[in-house]
Design a protein around this nucleic acid. Structure first.
Lengths: 343, 343
DNA sequence: CTGTTAGCGCGTTCAG
DNA sequence: CTGAACGCGCTAACAG
């Protein structure tokens, strides 16, 4: 391993001088600078980031925790975050938690050990008290899609409640006559909010309890497929046309698959609405009606918010951000208005 | 920041003792161990990984370079790699290169600076001489989907040639009467091999040059869509039924989209074959016929191979791995055999 | 079994 | 403008 000493020796200067030209922040004479650069080049020297970090207390890397890298929402989010971070000279260390709180904690620990400069948490289940602990250690935090009471944490989210409401409303408009929502993981605020929106819409429109149902389900495709299968098996709604609002697009794809398997025609005999408007939503068969959220923007804002905090002066008045982005219904083929005469 | 000194002080022992209990490798008396553990707990102490790495020369992290995290092939690959690595106490640092050789080099540099213990390269464009440089620094390397002459690098790949051949063969069987292959990025071995397989199949079956075409295209959805559009605009094949073999599934989705836009019916008026058998291939409209490769296994093998090398004794005889996995045609709805009477 | 000590590679005073 | 010296937090001999 070639170290700063080797470079100094080869260039006939002290290690301080080498350090100065590496970091470009102090004045070094033309000649020495060139000598150093030459030595760096010849030796193919790359500074040891661990040693640098040890003294500067900065690692230039950001921990990014997400729930499932194979979920298109998260992979696009990561892509967007990573792009923004890179532009500022930072690097993302991605942690895939698989919706598992235990893994999330392990990751936070590991990443703290690795001295990341900050976190973007787009995973789901850390309790806010745990987050506070993180803050005590003075590690900047941006939290996505979660309700946190702390006023020291930047929050970026979307209007899940309204999304749930809109999804339900759309299903109503389409004249499906039984409504089911496959709610996402219990411990997430997003799932709860979407479900709340769904229920409120049902009540606001005077739908009887016997005509709608919220099922505790999942954000994962295969699990949602199982849950809808179980529902269809155990409930006698053969004469009804169910309008199904899945927890997210991945779950919706699972539902679509199960429906297809059973020969239930979408959108005629059942309607399906997803959430996220993932890239593939438009390609699926049938193309998925869904609630869209601005993934790219979410990533960009998250990264920028964190970066800003990272570069803030200790004394600067800190006002935490709490941004809520709007969502929007995208109508596609998995739902359709049942025509008058058919009713 | 609480350091090992604070713990030592609080537990009334020396820092070496603290280090010993942290690393669990030396004998420490029951009492002292408990005292240390107690202090660790109370102080909420987390060892500084940078300092640890600085002395042990190990960072317990692996650089994983991929071409596009938003491509389902890569996101599943990452998921699989990450899972395997984690089980062994290693962590993946993901670099998203966007098929860009420059970014790839930047990442390698940055990750070397961060002292990753090894690399899994599933990106695409590093020249093998550059890879050799990496090896000179004694950093274990596993390279996916690439031809490398070096016998010091572990290689995992799939049979791209056969995949291309099979895709072409299938299109032939289906009786399409004009054949086009949208070849992926020039600088990749995978694209070249698939194209070679395609061409060989054409020639083996005596297809005239005027009836097939290889177009230089891309692995990216939007670019493939543009390329097929341009092809359809500039070539007069209105009376033909083109069988299109895209560079990968992402590209195939782009093609499907463009075809749909033009009202060209798939599989009747045109056939489409992808490559990868990504999770969504079965959901698309129409469901995508494609060449499948064992993504999960590729990831698992890659990680294990690297891990094995990491734990190898310096003196151990090193035989490099060069594994080629088989691929398989998956027939779905985007291709279909044209029935006799229609011909 | 335990403490002392010497670095790991680097940035940063502080003199000069 | 430059170099010597210190210390970041930790592990690994080395004594005891």
């Amino acid at each position: 391993m070639v170290s700063i000493n080797d470079v100094a020796e080869k260039a006939n200067v002290s290690i301080s001088t080498v350090s100065r030209v590496i970091n470009q922040n102090a004045n070094v004479s033309r000649e020495k600078e060139e000598a150093v650069l030459k030595a760096v080049d010849e030796l193919d020297y790359i500074p040891n980031g661990l040693a640098q970090g040890l003294v500067t207390k900065k690692s230039k890397s950001i921990g990014v925790l997400i729930a499932d890298i194979a979920n298109l929402y998260y992979s696009y989010l990561v892509k967007s975050i990573e792009k923004e971070l890179r532009a500022a000279g930072y690097y993302a260390v991605i942690g895939n938690t698989e919706w598992d709180g235990k893994r999330e904690k392990e990751y936070v620990r590991h990443l703290m050990q690795r001295q990341v400069d900050g976190f973007i948490l787009a995973s789901t289940s850390l309790t806010s008290s745990y987050l506070e602990q993180l803050l005590e250690k003075d590690i900047p935090l941006v939290v996505l899609d979660r309700e946190i009471k702390s006023d020291k944490i930047d929050k970026i989210r979307i209007d899940d409640y309204k999304g749930g409401y809109q999804a339900a409303e759309h299903l109503l408009e389409c004249r499906y006559n039984y409504f089911v929502h496959l709610q996402g993981a219990d411990f997430t605020a997003t799932a709860a909010d979407r479900a709340r929106g769904f229920k409120d819409c049902m009540q606001d429109n005077g739908i009887d309890h016997s005509n709608y149902k919220v099922i505790s389900s999942s954000f994962v495709e295969s699990e949602a497929a199982q849950d809808i299968a179980q529902f269809l098996d155990s409930n006698n709604i053969k004469d009804k046309r169910p309008g199904i609002f899945a927890a997210n697009d991945a779950a919706a794809f699972g539902v679509l698959k199960e429906l297809k398997k059973r020969g239930i025609k979408v959108p005629e005999q059942a309607g399906v609405v997803g959430f996220d408007n993932v890239n593939f939503a438009e390609y699926s068969s049938p193309a998925l009606t869904t609630i869209s959220r601005p993934i790219d923007e979410i990533g960009k804002i998250s990264a920028r918010t964190l970066l800003k905090r990272l570069n803030m002066n200790e004394n600067e008045k800190i006002t935490e951000k709490d941004i809520t982005l709007a969502v929007k219904l995208i109508r596609r083929e998995s739902t359709a208005k049942i025509s008058e005469e058919k009713l």
